[in-house]
Amino acid sequence: RLRTTILPEQLEILYRWYMQDSNPTRKMLDCISEEVGLKKRVVQVWFQNTRARERK
């Protein structure tokens, strides 16, 4: 499996959503993934990793 590259524009959108809610619902993940143009699972893992980084 290839690692997904997240573009700066996509990152900006993801962080904007993250500021609103760091733990989005499944429905929100659907909306975010549509807006960003990434698979739902990629967005979900990005949120998990970002929460983990914040805890450090």
Rank of each mutant, 00 (worst) to 15 (best):
R53N: 14
W17R: 13
T25V: 02
E34D: 09
L2H: 10
P8C: 06
Q48I: 12
R55Q: 15
D30F: 10
F47D: 00
K40M: 08
K56Y: 09
A52K: 12
R1C: 13
F47H: 00
M28L: 08
R16H: 08
D30W: 07
K39N: 13
L7G: 14
Y15I: 10
W46L: 01
P8E: 11
Q48W: 04
L2P: 09
I32D: 02
L14Y: 03
V42N: 06
K40R: 14
R41C: 10
E12T: 11
V45W: 11
N23V: 07
F47S: 03
Q48M: 06
I32T: 01
G37H: 02
E9I: 00
T25W: 00
W46M: 00
L14V: 03
L7T: 15
S33D: 00
L11E: 12
P24T: 03
M28V: 12
D30I: 12
W17C: 09
V43A: 00
L29G: 03
L14K: 04
R53I: 06
R51L: 05
L29H: 02
L11M: 11
R51K: 12
Y15Q: 15
R41I: 08
L38A: 00
I6H: 08
S33C: 09
E12W: 02
G37E: 06
R26Q: 15
R55T: 12
T50V: 09
V43T: 05
Q44K: 10
R16W: 08
F47V: 03
Y18I: 00
R26K: 15
T50F: 07
M28T: 13
Y18Q: 01
K40Y: 10
Q20W: 06
L11S: 12
E35M: 03
A52F: 03
N49A: 08
K56F: 00
I6L: 09
C31T: 15
V36M: 07
W46Y: 05
I32L: 01
Y15N: 14
K40T: 12
C31N: 15
I6W: 02
E34A: 10
Q44A: 12
V45G: 11
M28S: 12
V42A: 05
C31R: 15
R53L: 12
K40I: 07
S22C: 07
K39E: 13
R53V: 10
K27H: 10
M19P: 02
K40D: 07
E9W: 11
N49E: 15
Q10W: 04
Q10E: 07
A52W: 06
